[in-house]
Design a protein around this nucleic acid. Structure first.
Lengths: 212, 212
DNA sequence: TGTACATCAGTGAACGCGCGTTCACTGATGTAC
DNA sequence: TGTACATCAGTGAACGCGCGTTCACTGATGTAC
């Protein structure tokens, strides 16, 4: 077996299981069982369960941030004077998300579920790690969104940004179950790409709607 | 000590701790320690940890649904022919949420965190219990929202409703940490009621924005 | 080319610990006769 | 009024179990001389 293969198998199984059940509900025995590697291999390669969690996030966030940055570069270059619209920024996020899932072989649902977990499961070590490693890209993104919505106060902008993030993360991370409900109740199937397209104008309107 | 007091102390401690850390991360020993009751009292009064989780949700959802129903009644009666607007429905939810937290002595953040957990922590027994006990109120709410946004296809309505729920649940349940970040980065404090007011037009715009 | 040693990925079994749950028990209160 | 019994809230200690982690060990590969 090629070296590094064990590491990759552990990371894959951990991503799948963490996204499905959360961190505390997923034991190392379940992970190593699914990955078909020895239990002790996790601590051998990663040191601890905490560090495994961080490694899983690295594998997801690094390609995403890379793609997001180059998408933002492209859009900045293309639209010179008239500035970048919020719709364009959202589409940067969408395609960065899709491209990064191609890279890692993970689904969009899984990636956004992991992102949601980072918010909702209060793992302080994880929050610190993510802010430290990927805070810069986030700041850049937030700055561009703010430029696209002039005239909003700091407070109003900030909260509207979180409304947008909440809508996106919540919907995408629960996509499978929401799709299943819609399918069984109304017999209508929806593709992920379709929902991401539906989402763009809705997210944009959150930011652009007139002030209260 | 008055009878029923132990039950109430357990429910209170469990609500606080579940909302803070999730279900798996909260042990019965932590709960009974905080509530200052005997460890075995949980299984004596509730039967199991699962049933305790359900009881916590009952204590939260029952008053919320009660208030939401009467708010919806009031608004239906008031606005006869011209129909009920989406803003009115959102405000029904807001005040039902505020009133129900007064009842139970729990914060809005805690209630929405619990609601978010019900979605994100895949506790199948809990999802079934909630749908069985409170699905009717949800159907009524969803039906009224749909009437307030005529012209949308089933698919488009359905997904926009989830964008709205996501934005609301995500923001309110993370309110404390978002508020803290805004405070430390820009020195500006925001009250919960203020955010709920900011949220109304943004949520309404998700539903009302023109079709793609 | 041969030998001795170092490095490294991986293993199997065990460690102590905290978990949810169980059970025999206590002591107070209510009820029947 | 007195006594026997039933009910009920609560308790203390222990149960077995699955958890993350540790450790001595193996066997393959690389390196120095």
């Amino acid at each position: 077996m090629a070296p590094g293969d064990t590491v990759e198998k552990i990371l894959h199984a951990a991503s799948v299981l963490f996204a499905e059940r959360g961190f505390a509900e997923t034991s190392l025995r379940t992970i190593t069982g699914m990955a078909d590697v020895n239990l002790a291999a996790v601590n051998y390669h990663f040191g601890s369960k905490k560090e495994l969690i961080q490694a899983v996030f690295s594998r997801v966030l690094q390609p995403f941030c890379k793609h997001l940055n180059s998408e933002l570069d492209a859009v900045l270059e293309k639209s010179g004077e008239q500035g970048v619209s919020i719709e364009q920024i959202i589409e940067c996020c969408s395609s960065a998300l899709l491209k990064s899932t191609e890279d890692s072989g993970m689904s969009v649902q899984r990636v956004t579920r992991l992102l949601g977990l980072a918010y909702t499961q209060s793992q302080e070590h994880l929050r610190q790690y993510i802010v430290g490693a990927y805070g810069e890209t986030y700041e850049r993104f937030a700055g561009m969104v703010q430029k696209a919505a002039p005239g909003l106060s700091m407070v109003e902008f900030y909260w509207r940004l979180y409304f947008m993030l909440g809508a996106a993360v919540f919907t995408l991370s629960s996509f499978d179950s929401l799709r299943a409900i819609l399918n069984s109740d109304y017999g209508h199937d929806t593709e992920l790409e379709q929902v991401m397209q539906l989402m763009t104008p809705s997210l944009a309107s959150i930011l652009n709607v007139a002030k209260e």
